[in-house]
C-alpha cells in the first residue's frame, strides 16, 4: 500500500514537484544518500515520459505517482496512454544518437529509457492491471 500518493495534471511544470516529493519520501524511507541523485533522475524521467504520452494523446487525466516504503522503496508512475507498454529499454548506439535523421522526440525518448535502465537496477515497465495505460515500477533498497 502506498504511503504517499501524488497525482498531477500532465504539465511539464509539475514534474519537478514529483521529483522533489519522490526524493523527500526516499530520504525519509532510508534510501542511501548517494542513491538520491539517481532516484531524483529516474522519477523525473518516468514522469516526463508519462507527461509526454498524455500530451501526445491529448489526455487530461492526471499522472499518478505512488511511493511506498515497506521494506524497500518502491515507486510506481502510471500513465493512461493507449499504447503497448514499452518493454524494449535498449539504449541507442552513439552513432545513431548524432544521426541527422533521428527526431528530437525519438532521441529524447531513447535517452530517457537509457537513463531509466542505467540508473534503476530493479525496473519494470508493464501495462496497468486495470484499464488503459502503463506503469513504470522502480525499486531501491532501503539501508537502515
Amino acid at each position: 500500500m502506498a504511503t504517499v500518493r501524488l497525482s498531477f495534471s500532465p504539465a511539464p511544470v509539475h514534474v519537478r514537484t514529483a521529483r522533489l516529493v519522490g526524493v523527500a519520501v526516499a530520504r525519509r524511507a532510508g534510501v542511501r544518500e548517494d542513491l538520491l541523485d539517481e532516484v531524483r533522475l529516474a522519477i523525473g524521467e518516468a514522469c516526463t515520459r508519462a507527461v509526454a504520452l498524455h500530451r501526445q494523446y491529448g489526455l487530461h487525466d492526471p499522472v499518478l505517482v505512488e511511493m511506498s516504503d515497506s521494506g524497500q522503496y518502491a515507486v510506481r508512475v502510471v500513465d493512461r496512454a493507449p499504447i503497448e507498454a514499452g518493454i524494449g529499454l535498449a539504449a541507442l548506439p552513439p552513432d545513431e544518437l548524432a544521426n541527422e535523421a533521428l527526431t528530437d522526440e525519438a532521441l529524447t525518448t531513447g535517452v530517457g529509457f537509457a537513463l531509466l535502465a542505467g540508473f534503476v537496477e530493479d525496473l519494470q515497465v508493464r501495462p496497468v492491471d486495470e484499464g488503459v495505460g502503463t506503469e513504470v515500477r522502480m525499486v531501491w533498497p532501503v539501508g537502515r
Partner: peptide, 15 residues
C-alpha cells in the same frame, strides 16, 4: 539537474 529533455536540446544544437 539535467534530464533527457535537456540532453535532447544539447544534441539538437550540436547537429
Amino acid at each position: 539537474f539535467l534530464d533527457s529533455t535537456g540532453l535532447g536540446v544539447l544534441v539538437g544544437a550540436l547537429k
